[in-house]
Design a protein around this nucleic acid. Structure first.
Length: 703
RNA sequence: GGGAGCGUGGCGGAAUCGGCAUACGCAGCGGACUUAAAAUCCGCCGCCGCAAGGCUUGUGGGUUCGAAUCCCACCGCUCCUACCA
């Protein structure tokens, strides 16, 4: 197990990052303990396959989950263990065979030694009472001491020892030595590995360090990728061009009857060799996953009790359903060092089977077990009989939009998907995935670029900013600073600007509905033509911006939605300056336009600035009810269009002039206007081609 | 070591399908109003250049009528993962 010495508890693999505890960042140690697991590995394939259904998830998160699940296609190969005298059994039984997993069966001819993990359960039996025992057990002991942190920091010096035993390679009958090596991971594959030093850099390093033979197989003895110094057996390699060797997978197998077949993962050679091993009963196709079972036991008070009872007579007995849930005791003195195990009122119980004295399991479950399905309860929160009624939950779920930090990409989001599938298989849910759309908001960084966190003490307090500018301004400013999925380096320079903008909105709305006091934006002096132009732009912007904001919200682009609202506000400002209060008061049409624009503006801004818009809704616009139950403003894409468009005129892709044409002008007319606009520049040149992109530009290709 | 992503003005950022690069804002500069300041409003604001004009999306190539966007190589940064056979 992974053990955190500070938290005094075990951790799941997912909760160890770079060798450290996810919660307190202490270096994680290894311990041998008997613990409870959930068998998430049974769902490895489905958890991987169903990532394809998650169109609304960031690619990055799906990639991280796929890597974590880590599917590898390969084969199991059975080697025969020789006895202590080094003789292979004539008719080996299953007990005489040791299985390895490999993705490169085509390299079996290059296997020159055989490795076991230090934690391998058969290791002790192999060396017990032999002259090799001391050295092997030393490697086992040392492996426990090297912390995962040291390994993560690149301390990858490999250690090993010969066990004195041999195994026979099933493909060629070669006898190779068995070593223990600390770079073999016990709980991946079988904890035993065939070593092919000319095909694997780690095996190569190990072979060099302990002077083990290196057989050049992928390519043959004379391949230039291997720099060779042959000993009397003709098989010592001093170095390998690894970069090239990695790309050499398409090359040919050069050994035995397979000579001439291509090598590599899923290659002809690999297929042929696995097929022969299978026929001989010495191998079979196998898929391995990196994902391990989820260790849920925690040595903590807070957590769901694990509902199991230990009885001396009956063994392990589950708490019967009618006694569930098991509740934590509240009369426990944690500060005095009392634990669930020492709390007799909790730990002591009677066996549900025989009625005799028994003890409860006093470990509790990982907090992530609770967070893996809490959201289901939201669909039926008052149910006193069941966690949730399936009919209700199936109606509401899955969650349309889930929001969370990227730090949960593997932990919470993988566990929740697993729980959903298990509950579905138990008949309690009728869907496969809990969260249709996922938004991972970026983290907030301080001025040095460090992630803000309570434990680092570098968080900024929103209270002060809210006191100075109001929470609508703080909220709008945060949304405006960056798209939500991007990380954001905190900087308050623009906050005062956002505050000014909202004040401007406030005054404008009152001005538009004719309730401005003395503080109007109107500056006399605009001509009728200028007033008409401002009015036209305003009407267009009202429709264009409403469409853009609705669209931006669908894509979570809140920053550009706010930018668009600012553009509408700029158009309103121009209108208010040029069409004065008296003019507006005198015209029913003008009042209707101004009121509608005010109404649209306030509704567009409502999700961003909920407080001030609700006040404007009642006090300025005189509307009833809450603004937050209103629909988005309607809009007409036709009215968002201008009847004239400005086009760039390019010569060979460089902008040389700009022309204004009617929006519905036909291409020939546009071409003529464009050519006229640049006639001096193209004079005397050969016109190869004229590309007209309606509404955008004209590109003239001339030589 | 393996995987993913990013690089645009002084700054945050925009450009949704290959079509006017720098929207919107911050900072800065100039102006109006004011006895003055605040507040408010207007204008300028990528780089070089007096100008005409030229250059510009990390660097270098390629595809294309046209590239921030697609392809290749390199440089730099970030995140994830890590002795996974």
């Amino acid at each position: 197990m992974n053990w955190c010495p500070k938290c005094q508890t075990v951790l799941a693999n997912e909760q160890v990052t770079e060798g450290e505890c996810w919660r307190c960042h202490s270096a994680v140690e290894k311990r041998d303990l008997t613990q409870w697991y959930l068998k998430i590995t049974d769902y490895a394939q489905e958890l991987l396959d169903d990532l394809d259904q998650l169109d609304g998830w960031p690619e990055r998160v799906k990639q991280m989950q796929a890597n974590w699940i880590g599917r590898s296609e390969g084969a199991e190969v059975k080697f025969t263990l020789c006895d202590k005298q080094g003789n292979a059994p004539e008719n080996p039984t299953e007990d005489d065979l040791i299985t390895v997993f490999t993705t490169r069966a085509d390299t079996l001819f290059g296997c020159s030694f055989f490795l076991l993990a230090p934690e391998s359960p058969i290791l002790k039996g192999l060396v017990e009472g032999t002259e090799y025992e001391a050295a092997v057990m030393q490697v086992v002991e040392d492996a426990k001491k090297i912390t995962a942190v040291e390994r993560a920091q690149g301390n990858k010096e490999k250690h090993g020892a010969f066990t004195g035993r041999y195994v026979v390679n099933p493909i060629n009958g070669e006898k190779v030595p068995v070593w223990v090596a600390d770079y073999i991971v016990a709980d991946y594959g079988t904890g035993a590995v065939m070593a092919v030093p000319c095909g694997d850099q780690r095996d190569f390093e190990f072979a060099k360090k302990y002077d083990l033979p290196i057989i050049p197989i992928i390519l043959g003895d004379d391949d230039p990728l291997f720099e060779q110094l042959k000993d009397e057996q003709g098989r010592v390699v001093t170095s390998v061009d690894w970069d090239s060797a990695m790309e050499a997978e398409g090359r040919l197998v050069q050994s035995g009857k397979y000579t001439g077949l291509t090598g590599g993962k899923h290659s002809e050679g690999e297929e042929a060799i696995v097929a022969d091993l299978e026929a001989a009963g010495r191998g079979k196709r196998k898929v391995e996953f990196r994902l391990r079972d989820w260790l849920i036991s925690r040595q903590r008070y807070w957590g769901n009790p694990i509902p199991m009872i230990y009885c001396d007579k009956c063994g392990l007995v589950p708490v019967p359903e009618e006694d569930l849930p098991v509740r934590l005791p509240e009369d426990i003195d944690l500060s005095a060092g009392e634990t669930l195990a020492t709390h007799e009122g909790f730990a002591k119980c009677t066996c549900p089977k025989c009625g005799g004295e028994a003890r409860r399991e006093t470990d509790t479950m990982d907090t992530f077990t609770c967070s893996s399905w809490y959201y289901l309860r939201y669909t039926d929160p008052h149910n006193t009989e069941l966690p949730f009624d399936s009919a209700k939950t199936n109606r509401w779920m899955p969650v349309d939009q889930y929001i969370g930090g990227i730090e949960h990409a593997i932990l919470h989001l993988l566990y929740s998907r697993f729980f959903t599938k298990v509950l579905r298989d138990l008949g309690m849910l009728d869907f496969d995935e809990p969260f249709k759309n996922l938004l991972c908001q970026g983290m907030v960084l301080d001025e040095h670029g460090d992630v803000m966190s309570k434990s680092k003490g570098n968080v900024i307090s929103p209270e002060e900013m809210i006191a100075g500018y109001g929470c609508d301004a703080v909220r709008a400013y945060i949304l405006f600073m960056a798209p939500p999925d991007k990380e954001l380096q905190w900087n308050e320079d623009g906050l005062a600007g956002m505050h000014k903008f909202l004040n401007r909105v406030w005054r404008m709305v009152y001005d538009l509905v004719g309730k401005a006091d003395e503080d109007t934006l109107y500056q006399p002096g605009a001509s009728d033509a200028e007033a008409a132009a401002a009015r036209k732009v305003l009407l267009r912007e009202r429709h264009r911006v409403a469409g853009k904001v609705v669209d931006d919200f669908d894509r979570n682009n809140f920053n550009t939605a706010i930018a668009a609202i600012m553009e509408l506000v700029n158009a309103i400002g121009d209108y208010l300056r040029k069409v004065g209060p008296e003019q507006r008061a005198a015209s029913v049409d003008e009042q209707a336009l101004a009121t509608e624009v005010a109404n649209v503006l306030v509704r567009l801004l409502a999700p961003i600035c909920p407080h001030m818009t609700d006040e404007l809704w009642h006090d300025a616009l005189g509307c009833e009810g809450s603004i937050h139950t209103q629909e988005w403003p309607e809009f007409d894409p036709e009215k968002a269009k201008d009847d004239e468009v400005e086009l760039a005129v390019q010569i060979n892709g460089k902008v040389k002039a700009r022309i204004t044409v009617a929006a519905d002008a036909d291409q020939e007319a546009v071409k003529a206007v464009a050519l006229e606009a640049v006639q001096d520049a193209v004079a005397g040149k050969d016109l190869k081609k004229v590309v007209v992109v309606p509404g955008r530009l004209v590109n003239i290709v001339a030589k």
